[in-house]
Design a protein around this nucleic acid. Structure first.
Lengths: 227, 227, 227, 227
DNA sequence: GATGAATGAGTCTTCATTCAT
DNA sequence: TATGAATGAAGACTCATTCAT
């Protein structure tokens, strides 16, 4: 009974705080909530496979009710989209900063490879989660994913271009080379995730760099491949 | 009584013989049906994402009823396992033949890369389908998948070893290099599938080879990377 | 091929044997088959719960095909009805013989109790199986079951009547007493089946007889119960 | 920042308090719903045999949707387990009170017999339903059922022991005698259910008592049965 | 008559989403 | 706005029964 009274007060308090001052405070609240839900998604993915990522579990992990999720995200897809964006945005930013960093192109690429290969498993789960997000490849999912990939490829290609212009790199189609490099780290991550390999990302990165930089052929020089 | 005796004899004979002959025919039929269902799975995957691969849809695509599927496969997992095996087995065999083919190691690797990059999208879908098969990575799914991956990596590593011994290849850990190459083609395929790239597999293969063989660095020679 | 030829011969042979002489031989065949299927049902119930008694399993246990079952029984219910009849008929007959045997009424009842309590578990399963037979209490199932029960009760009541007339038994409504006795052994069997008791049927029978014959009250004499 | 702090506090408070109070109401609702679903199960069993007791039908009988059932019971087995417990618990309690009631042992047993024989048919159906619940005798079902039976047998045996000590009852193994009495009433109920007998439970109880107390044999005294 | 592949209704269960409070 | 009970559309799987050979 006493409790009930307090609740009413809190409610009205919240009502006042939340609705009277519409702008910043409300937005702050919404932002906090969204991030909280983000964390909840990541949390759930730590202990459940993507196909077991249910709204119920997310709500529970976030300490809110299922219905609340729908006040912040129209549906499951939007939630996941948001989480993915939130998760990869910092990585993208770091990558884009890397382009202009004061390192040699080789060092930059190595940094990227290390970064990518050290993404924790959760990120691999996220990749799968987004792929499975109900409706699947809706235009929205497709578009956002493609855009993000393009930013990665573009950043890497600019590093390669830098290498070419600086004279050290072989003249190659930088975009395609970048796409290959991205594919390589994605695939390598998938393999590691699937097979539970114990190889550290450091070891894997070393391997990658050796081949990316020098190729398989000793003294690969100007010698021609097939083409 | 005498009659009964005769009858029993006939009966047992009939039991044994009647089922023996239809045997070969039955097996042929079963094989045809299984392949037909395989095709149906592939067909469904052409227009649906793996999580929408339902027994219902497979049955419909195969032009049979749901129940029929269960006359050929104990459950969904077995169906998918079968399809995956059926699909990748020929590729594996071609790869393993390739190891002993009369080509240079570089040519062999290029052949593999071309082969792998020309896999239709459906194969990528299959990879995902197997990962999602109901409970996810059941022991069986995991084991078969891991085994198959191992065969691929092993075959590629033998090609690399050959290249190293023949003197042309840089001395590297062939298993790890092979795992990287496999990862690269898997990832590249994923990217192409996701982004609907129009690049032909031939172009992609050329790119791959150039970098795999010579590396990014011109005249990469014996120069050291970081390490 | 040679095999195929033999089969054709056997088939035509069977065709001749079976259809030319329509009466006895055909009936004998049918009877044998039916009994064989009966055994198969019992066999299945030894290793499966009644709800797992499928036509498939019965066919397999009988070494015939599923379709064949339907040449001898219109449907599952009829099959089970037949099995139940076949199984309990001998027991009923023994019971009815017992009525006229040269034993004291007490001995006769004890014999019945021992008989009933020593029915193997399979019989308990049969009871459940018949209760679950698809349509459940169809008029047919109901009628046959009721009739059989009535024969049991009737037989026991005649034994009791004999005891009353011979002077030893208390004057009671023999039909009701008989129904109670039957209920008691059925219930006792159910309990034993459910709880996996290890008590031998001999021990159980001793217990039963002591109470049935003398009652709980020492020197129960002519003393009145409540009524 | 300050704002954020306040918000967080409100939030956590709200989280805690908002769910506490509805708590009692929620629990009340849950209890009501569960009982409602219980009734629905009973209702279904009045017109369907246990094997036709489907979640669908229960939901329909309760006037809710199928999915709702799963908000209150994890699965069918739990639902049935709950119903059985709910149904038999009061009877068990009455029985256990009876043990210490101020009646003679004979009266107590008669009370129990009357109680047991007046159980509505639905209870018999429930017994069967629990036995058939999906996988059949799962450990949980088995254990709870066995425990409940044991409580009944134990209660009756204590009554018998009382009778023996008071001097009136024949010295017998009270547990076994109790098991027999329970078996007798269970079996008698089954018979009544199956055959649709119209005998009132009062008549049946009278019959039971006469035989249980005095036995079949007039003046059964200390006379020996077989053994 | 024997066969067994095909059928499809029926069962349990999950989960995204809605909506009254 | 938060809540969480209710919903119902799917989905995997079973099995009695049919029917072409």
């Amino acid at each position: 009974m006493t409790d009930a009274f307090i609740i009413v007060n809190i409610w009205s308090l919240q009502g006042i705080l939340m609705t009277r001052i519409p702008g910043s405070r409300k937005e702050a609240w919404e932002k906090m909530m969204k991030e909280s839900l983000c964390d909840a998604v990541i949390e759930v993915l730590k202990s459940h496979k993507p196909e077991k990522l249910t709204m119920e579990r997310v709500a529970e992990a976030a300490g809110v009710s299922k219905g609340t999720l729908y006040n912040y995200f129209r549906n499951k897809e939007e939630l996941i989209l948001y989480v993915v964006a939130k998760t990869f945005e910092p990585l993208l930013e770091r990558l884009e900063e890397l382009v202009h960093a004061s390192q040699t192109p080789v060092e930059k690429i190595e940094t990227f490879v290390r970064m990518a290969l050290s993404l924790p498993d959760t990120h691999g789960q996220l990749f799968r989660a987004i792929l499975e997000s109900e409706e699947g490849l809706t235009p929205k999912v497709y578009h956002e994913g493609a855009e993000r990939r393009m930013r990665v490829v573009s950043a890497i290609s600019r590093i390669i271009d830098e290498g070419i212009q600086a004279g050290g790199f072989r003249k190659t189609n930088s975009m395609k080379a970048a796409a290959m490099i991205l594919g390589a780290v994605i695939g390598r991550n998938m393999l590691r995730f699937q097979s539970g390999e114990s190889e550290t990302s450091d070891e894997a990165a070393g391997e990658f760099m050796e081949i990316f930089i020098h190729g398989l052929v000793a003294g690969g020089g100007p010698g021609e491949v097939k083409e």
